[in-house]
């Protein structure tokens, strides 16, 4: 019991997931450097938003995803603005397949994700990039389509009982880190021009209509 409350003291922060997200969703080249609460260092090389698919990177990623992280930063050497990194690094999906969180961490992750504003989810056939639970991601995507103000809280609530909290958290972490999950305003904000905003307006009204059918 006392051990547990010890752990609780250092309320986990998951800001390092944002660092990973930044590194992967733009074409960064550089290094992610972190230190765990247990004073262990880790580094992950990033090349134009991609990661090396080797055991070293795998272990560094697994540690980053499962340990309490004291600090984490992205040292960027270069950003290729033109490049759009559209394929998830295999080593990340490998890491996601392998790792587990204890119940307490899962609850904290759930609480953290629940604070995000309404989200937009982009479809990605994650199983093609080595992720073993593409179905739960598909479920997240499908739920997001049904609801104009879709939030992670709704996802947690709508998920059928046969998916575990860990499965749910994993697809959120994955989607977040890969930049597949974004704040909803990004879709409804300003558009590229008049013709574009006309299409946008039509699409948005039809969406509302069909959601209500």
């Amino acid at each position: 019991m006392s051990k547990e409350s010890d752990k609780k003291q250092k309320t986990s922060s998951f800001k390092h997931l944002g660092v990973l997200r930044k590194a992967l969703s733009k074409a960064h080249t550089g290094e992610i450097i972190y230190k765990t609460e247990r004073e262990e260092d880790g580094q992950i090389i990033v090349t134009t938003g991609d990661l090396i698919n080797d055991d070293e990177t795998l272990h560094a990623l697994e540690k980053l995803l499962t340990e309490s992280i004291a600090n984490c930063e992205l040292i960027t050497e270069r950003i290729d603005e033109e490049l759009e990194n559209s394929t998830p690094p295999m080593v990340l999906t490998r890491a996601m397949n392998d790792i587990h969180w204890d119940a307490e961490t899962l609850e904290e992750l759930k609480k953290t994700f629940a604070k995000l504003p309404p989200i937009d989810v982009k479809m990605m056939p994650l199983h093609r990039y080595g992720y073993s639970d593409g179905l739960t991601y598909l479920m997240l995507y499908q739920e997001s389509l049904k609801d104009e103000h879709f939030t992670t809280v709704k996802f947690f609530n709508e998920c059928p009982a046969y998916t575990t909290l860990e499965q749910q958290i994993k697809v959120l972490v994955l989607g977040y880190c890969l930049g597949l999950i974004n704040p909803q305003v990004s879709l409804k904000g300003k558009t590229k021009g008049a013709a574009s905003s006309r299409r946008m307006s039509m699409a948005s009204r039809i969406l509302d209509k069909i959601r209500g059918m």
Partner: peptide
């Protein structure tokens, strides 16, 4: 149909604005 419309909206959205929201 919803999936298609979401893709349409994503296509039309201004990428630069997205960065601020991020």
């Amino acid at each position: 149909v919803l999936a298609l419309l979401e893709d349409v909206m994503r296509d039309e959205a201004d990428d630069e604005l997205e960065e601020e929201a991020l």
